[in-house]
Design a protein around this nucleic acid. Structure first.
Lengths: 269, 269
DNA sequence: CCGGATTTGGAATATATGTTCCATTTTGCT
DNA sequence: AGCAAAATGGAACATATATTCCAAATCCGG
């Protein structure tokens, strides 16, 4: 039991080993610490306890279980390992860049940057009015149909999941069984189509078909001039930064979640 | 003179501007701070004063000249900038709800902010070594099995898509047909499991089953102490901001793409 | 070299933070 | 259901740390 952890690594091992058999509150501490280890250096017990959702005294006990005499001793470990151990975000990316061309970490840094850039653009490229309109349309629909294929399928499936979770009737359309799906779309419903260049034929066809049935369409798509604009859909434009063969979907997903949440809360009120 | 610095950048500007005309001891403070700015977050006045070779009271005066009311206020600036200042988003969203602020654009802004914070954290929380190891494992597998259910399904499906696109044999496992899926996993394959708290039982079971077959497991999961750690999986930790049903998956997806791309390029060379 | 203004050191004080203790609640067992 | 053991919350207490104040030292213009 004794042996106080002498390094962050030992600390993490200890945490893992100990956290299996821990009562509720102490487990909360363990979990919070596991995902916010770095905060220990700069936070007070009170702050950590609040973050973990427990009383300071509970957090105190947690420190003791970890092998320290108290919070101060535990904090000292992290304060000391902090010195010099934390270049800022920018230098960290540079450092990762220096690694081999195709190393995982190097790629990760690239994608993180691409995603950040995309997110920054997002607020500019989405028209607030169109967003409000989209929320209206989807919130007042009897059933929301979601379609997104290939690369957009991940987004579509997440939206469908989120809507379901919020009790908004939603249906996810896949490539398979297209014929049946189409007949499921009825007046009073709405369609949310997600597609990016090169636009998948199936999605465009579905939008086209639906147009004739007085079913409003919301499109999550790229800013380029694309066929959907001519089809009278409410357009939410996302300009995602391309990187290599793949597109970081971060901004798209971010918009997707915001949209879903907005629809969910609008509906429930 | 007033105007307390609101960011590290402003702080540095102020420091530069002020340090020209300063008496001896205060100049020592300025110089020491200039080259040890980051220590402020984790040190006491006494420690800083000693480092600068002055009395605490002198250091105190220095803080005031910098525009702060005292050391504590100055320290707060650095502590907050260190943790990236993500004030608990869960409560922030709750707050938004209470205020009846669920307009689409407003929500979008919140989610963008949350995603940005998550991305910044991503580079901290992912262990580069573990990432390299994960790439190795997946690149040398005969077939990569991908599993992610519920909210992680979007990520799993995107990875499966990306891998396929890069000609890496991959198989996406769903909740349905679990029994058949399990038998498809054979020695020489690898499993990529994506799961976040609360961990879905099915995913954990699959990992458990597979362990006995000498199939290596890579897990894309959260930083919390979770069952996967004990199962000998290679852990890629993502700390994502999360509000109940709604999780900003931006960081997770970003890591997913980087991982997929790395595996793809590793394989083709 | 003198006198006033400025700067400095260090002790005294105020405040914030960590730590302990114990009454109360919850859990687990028979 | 009833009991003992474990866990918890909260307030009381102790300690560390920031902050202030003032007398002593230093600096500067005459």
């Amino acid at each position: 039991m004794a042996a106080v952890p002498a390094s962050v690594k030992e600390f993490e091992e200890r945490l893992l080993e100990v956290s299996a058999a821990l009562p509720k509150r102490l487990k909360q501490c363990a979990d919070f610490v596991a995902s916010n280890t770095d905060r220990i250096a700069v936070s007070t017990v009170a702050e950590m306890a609040e973050g973990a959702g427990v009383q300071p005294s509970a957090f105190m006990r947690f420190c003791q279980i970890m092998g320290f005499s108290g919070y101060s001793e535990m904090q000292r470990l992290f304060r000391e390992s902090y010195v010099g151990g934390w270049p800022d975000y920018a230098t960290r990316i540079d450092h990762l860049r220096d690694m081999g061309e195709h190393s995982g970490p190097r790629l990760l840094a690239e994608f993180v940057e691409a995603s950040r850039a995309s997110l920054e653009n997002l607020l500019k490229s989405v028209d607030p009015q169109a967003l409000e309109e989209a929320v209206d349309i989807l919130a007042s629909a009897n059933l929301v149909h979601v379609i997104g294929l290939r690369r957009s399928f991940a987004v579509a499936s997440y939206i469908a999941y989120a809507l379901e979770k919020m009790r908004v009737p939603a249906m996810l359309h896949g490539a398979a069984g297209r014929l049946e799906s189409v007949s499921a779309i009825r007046p009073g419903d709405a369609l949310l189509a997600i597609t990016f260049s090169p636009y998948s034929q199936e999605t465009l066809e579905l939008v086209e078909t639906v147009r004739g049935r007085e079913v409003p369409v919301v499109a999550l798509t790229d800013a380029a001039v694309n066929p959907l604009r001519k089809m009278g859909a409410t357009i939410l434009a996302v300009s995602e930064v391309d990187f290599g063969a793949f597109r970081s979907l971060s901004a798209t997903l971010c918009l997707a979640i915001a949209l879903s949440t907005a629809v969910g809360t609008r509906r429930s009120t």
